[in-house]
Design a protein around this nucleic acid. Structure first.
Length: 984
RNA sequence: GCCCCUGUGGCGAAAUUGGUAUACGCAGUGGACUUAAAAUCCAUCGCUUCGGCUUGCGGGUUCGAAUCCCGCCAGGGGUACCA
């Protein structure tokens, strides 16, 4: 597009490229973006010293080094963070802005398998490629603080943090220094409590700590550790060949990566006790500046609910008389309406199923089996074979069998049959419920399917008619379609003889019941969480090995810190063992277990050399992303994961006026897709480190911002095949009449659809395309001016030209296109120009503070358009504009700044301040409304008296016309802007 | 089903939070420069039957509503046997 006969110094793509690469080289050489630490190797930050300026810490959710390269959507957040970093540098702050690479994990390994190369090779290639793409954008990173999560020195500290978590337990009663209750504590404190007899040893009543064998002690502690091994139902994904965390399984029961079916299997795996932090993870959301949406998603995911756990006596157990069943309910007030019980198929009580059906059991309760024992066993087997998908398929049909057992309702004395059914989940609450078909749709459906009685004990506010006596034993609250009519919190509860609840609202009835349960000693108030412990092991090669070995008795031992990092063996066979995606019976196999010379070692762990077996699972890729932000602060520290003094300086609660009481990163930009994955895990790890005294901030990210997605049009031909979007032309002249625009490709009609940018959709636009056609500054400017940062927006390459024109006009306002010399005047700007300049400074500053670059840029364009209209451009008017442009378009700003005769770079130049004496307005346009419609305008002084304004307004001929000669009923004057006249 | 968000010109979007709706940009239209085209520059640019009418639709509150309230419609996101 650049013509040959253009002036030599016209700002076009070729000149932009020249300018940009020149400044990027200069920035690299001088290290202008280096941030100053308090101590250690990195104290020599440019322009600032840690002692004298406010620290500002701004980062992006770090990238995964994909082999596919970047498209124009990826850098949106990076540009925004860079803009804010540059802005804060100009405000005189000590800015830490850096980037690292999240290089372990499934996609890296899958890419390696595809290309047949070792993941370390492909990962390093991808990082190099991504670095150069990002570098060309002019992002102001401190290059000394860059690393990859796969670097052995980083892995060392990831393993070290794991060790600290493993060596901790959660003491719910510990009072923290910040006044809160509950804290991670060293496991040694717990051992002391067991050894001194201060705390009873669970499952070993009457024994002393020293009575226990090493294996028994390890088992006891395992139940307390924040990182622990357990055999429990986990998500097994044969298609990927690994187990997955709950957060990695989609709502329809498939793996988030690869979309394979997921099965529930009982397997021995590592977990993190994140549930211990459920309460604090919810509570502390109040102390951070995050989008409400993400807070809501986290609250939702943690899913705290309040209710009661109640123990029901069980009759008919095949072993012993005194069996009990503990249930959890959020509606203890409905205990009178319980007509049966349901336990999850995995529940232990199922093993108590007797050998004979009780008298008179209906046929449909038995599932056709001769004994409860057989029926339960068959049902359990059938349930195990079900994938998570089948379970997720929803509540359309209820299945289950009677266990042959009965429970006794403590409130009524009624005998309640106990069923097992898959609609009750083992890993929520206690895996057992009291079924109240009169109040719960699922219980109602089950009761209908199995012919069980329904008792109504709440009177919904939606059905005000009918007394409480009316509803005892009848069913007034079912709609014609057979669904329950929902009760609300204003509903009224119905009690019984043992416990009077009548006419209490539901909330009060519930606390009444809880008090009664506690008096009777059969229950208590309880809180339950939807959140599950975090499954932490994967059957993968490309991840951090655990710093754990097992002795010949299978007792786990933690490796001492001086033996870290545990490195991955450099082997050719790194492929995961995958299976037929539907093969639920397959078993996971860790690739590292195929390396006996690695997996089996002789170590001296303090009691002489012994043989040990290494843990062959690896950590999930979330491990590396849980703490990378800390490492930016102190990237080469070999004594700490982060020096406490640096953490306190950059992230502590007092480090910056904008940081709240939680402390944390000042600005963290990334996509919403991590709302419950990375952001929840990182908060959990950070809180453990906080409890143990390694960090001073209680939350990792004080301000979180989610940028929108860049979307794109894609085009198909008549056969539905995608055609290259760049070659599609819009048929001119169509669309103004409201009809659909029409498109042509190669002379044939094309059809537009809207969505993501992707290779297969043939609509990818890359940053490199943009550098080639416009330069990095135009690209940055366009991305920042498309719309609000938080909104998703469609990419339109042809719109980019508008951003280019703005830079070009600004350039021409300062520079002679033929000679490259500055053409500005040293004259004092006229009054109107001064006013506009100062107003623009004030407004742009406000927009930058609020992270609204789109409107900030619009205001800069207005100023530039005004300067263009002047005979000659005054230095005093254009220099503030150049300064304000620096955060968005730094290269052209630097070039103009130097051509305007300034020495030294612009990165640490001072952000302009508006001169208040030009901000006042003396003349203003007042609007005169009649019945709220604008009927006239007046030029008036800004300090006009309301009476004068009213007089002038009423004198307007148009106003008189609308009043029709009659006096107005009312006149509202908001001097000096509005007069609103109400006709009679 | 439940929870949340968003609907403004042909398009991306502004609107000091209840006070002149459509800033800024793209596209379009007319003109200048040019042998011509591109690029660049200047002007114009919601609809209109010229009375007015316009912020997805219908009501309401108000002197005044894109903004607040109620009820719809459409699109997007989250979540779902969580007891």
């Amino acid at each position: 597009m650049a013509g040959d006969n253009q002036p030599q110094y016209r700002y076009n793509a070729a000149l932009a490229q020249k300018i940009e690469t020149k400044w990027q080289k200069l920035w690299d050489e001088t290290g202008v973006f280096d941030a100053a630490n308090v101590s250690g190797a990195l104290t020599d930050g440019q322009g600032h010293h840690a002692g004298s300026s406010t620290p500002y810490f701004a980062i992006d959710m770090f990238p995964f080094p994909s082999g596919k390269g970047l498209h124009v959507g990826h850098p949106l957040g990076y540009i925004a963070t860079d803009m804010m970093s540059r802005y804060h540098r100009m405000k005189g702050e000590n800015v830490l802005h850096a980037i690292a690479f999240d290089a372990f994990g499934l996609p890296a390994e899958q890419y390696a398998v595809q290309t047949g190369q070792h993941p370390r090779v492909t990962t390093e290639e991808n990082i190099a490629n991504m670095r150069s793409q990002l570098h060309r954008m002019g992002l102001s990173f401190d290059s000394r603080r860059s690393f990859a999560t796969t670097d052995p020195q980083y892995v060392r500290w990831t393993q070290w943090i794991f060790s600290r978590i493993y060596e901790s337990w959660y003491d719910p009663d510990f009072v923290r220094a910040d006044g809160g209750t509950g804290s991670a504590r060293p496991i040694s404190e717990l051992v002391d409590q067991f050894a001194s007899g201060q705390r009873e040893i669970p499952d070993h009543a009457g024994q002393t700590w020293s009575d226990l064998s090493a294996a028994e002690q390890a088992d006891v502690l395992n139940d307390f550790r924040l990182a622990y091994i357990s055999k429990s139902p986990v998500n097994w994904c044969p298609g990927l060949g690994t187990v997955l965390a709950n957060e990695e399984v989609t709502a329809d029961g498939r793996s988030e990566r690869g979309n394979y079916p997921v099965f529930h299997r009982q397997l021995r795996q590592w977990s993190m006790r994140i549930t211990a932090y459920g309460r604090r993870l919810i509570e502390d959301l109040d102390s951070v500046d995050w989008p409400d949406k993400v807070k809501a998603m986290q609250r939702n995911w943690i899913g705290e609910s309040h209710g009661a756990s109640i123990r029901f006596r069980v009759i008919g157990a095949c072993s012993g008389e005194d069996a009990e069943l503990e249930i959890y309910t959020t509606r203890p007030d409905t205990i009178f309406g319980t007509t049966f019980m349901v336990v999850s198929p995995e529940h232990d009580i199922c093993e108590q199923a007797p050998e004979q059906w009780p008298e008179g059991v209906p046929q449909r309760w038995t599932g056709g089996y001769a004994t409860p024992r057989e029926a339960v066993a068959a049902y359990r087997k059938q349930d195990e074979a079900k994938s998570v998908i089948d379970r997720a398929a929803g509540p359309q049909t209820k299945s289950g069998v009677f266990t042959g057992l009965y429970a006794v309702n403590p409130a009524t004395g009624d005998r309640l049959p106990i069923f097992t059914a898959d609609y009750v989940l083992m890993d929520y609450g206690t895996g057992a419920i009291m079924a109240v078909p009169g109040g719960d749709q699922r219980d109602f459906d089950f009761a209908q399917a199995f012919g069980l009685p329904v008792k109504y004990v709440v009177k919904p506010s939606a059905s005000p008619e009918g007394s409480l006596d009316d509803i005892r034993g009848v069913k007034p609250f079912v709609s014609k379609t057979g669904t329950l009519i929902g009760s609300s919190t204003q509903a009224t509860a119905v009690g019984g003889e043992r416990l009077e609840l009548d006419d209490l609202d539901v909330k009060h009835a519930a606390s009444r019941v809880i008090a009664w349960l506690e008096e009777e000693g059969i229950g208590r108030g309880a809180t339950s969480y939807r959140l599950r412990d975090w499954l932490f092991s994967r059957q993968r090669y490309w991840g951090e090995p655990f710093p754990i070995v097992y002795d010949e008795d299978g007792v786990p031992h933690l490796l001492p810190d001086d033996q870290l990092p545990v490195r991955l063996p450099e082997v050719p066979d790194y492929k995961p063992k995958t299976f037929d995606p539907d093969d639920a019976d397959s078993d996971p196999e860790a690739p590292l277990s195929r390396n006996p010379e690695w997996a089996s070692v002789t170590l001296d762990l303090g009691d002489g050399p012994k043989r040990y077996r290494r843990e062959t699972n690896t950590m999930p890729n979330w491990a590396g992303s849980c703490w990378y932000y800390l490492r930016y602060l102190d990237p080469s520290d070999s004594e700490h994961c982060v020096d406490p003094a640096e953490e306190r300086y950059w992230m502590g609660p007092e480090h910056n006026a904008t940081a709240g009481k939680s402390g944390g990163v000042d600005l963290y930009i990334g996509g919403v897709e991590h709302a419950v994955l990375h952001l929840l895990y990182a908060r959990f790890w950070h809180k453990v480190l906080y409890d143990l005294g390694y960090v001073s901030s209680s939350e990792p990210f004080h301000k979180l911002f989610n940028q929108g997605y860049v979307q794109a049009y894609a085009y198909t031909d008549e056969r539905g095949q995608y055609v290259p979007a760049a070659e599609v032309e819009q048929v001119p002249g169509v669309g103004t009449d409201g009809s659909e625009p029409r498109f042509m490709w190669n002379g044939k009609p094309a059809f537009r659809e809207f969505g993501k940018m992707g290779k297969s959709l043939k609509n990818i636009v890359t940053p490199d395309d943009m550098y080639e056609r416009y330069g990095a500054d135009t690209f940055r400017l366009y991305e920042m001016s498309m719309g609000p940062l938080a909104d998703s927006r469609p990419w339109n390459t042809k719109d980019v030209t508008g951003s280019m024109r703005f830079l070009q006009r600004l350039w021409r306002n300062c520079i002679d296109e033929e000679t490259g010399e500055a053409v500005i005047t040293e004259d004092v700007p006229d009054e109107a120009t001064l006013k506009l300049v100062n107003r623009t400074i004030a407004e742009v500053t406000e927009e930058m503070e609020g992270m609204r670059p789109n409107t900030a840029i619009a205001k800069m364009i207005v100023l530039n358009n005004h300067l263009t209209s002047l005979e000659s451009v005054p230095r005093a008017a254009v220099e503030p504009l150049v300064l304000m442009l620096q955060p968005v378009a730094p290269h052209i700003a630097e070039e103009l700044w130097s051509r305007l005769g300034h020495e030294g770079g612009l990165s640490h130049a001072v952000w302009p301040v508006a001169d208040g004496k030009y901000l006042g307005v003396d003349d203003i346009t007042a609007v005169v409304q009649v019945k709220g419609k604008v009927r006239g305008k007046l030029q008036v002084p800004a300090d006009i008296a309301p009476e004068d304004l009213e007089k002038q307004a009423l004198a307007l001929p148009t106003v008189q016309k609308w009043l029709g000669g009659k006096p107005p009923r009312k006149v509202i004057v908001k001097a000096p802007k509005i007069v609103s006249v109400v006709p009679a």
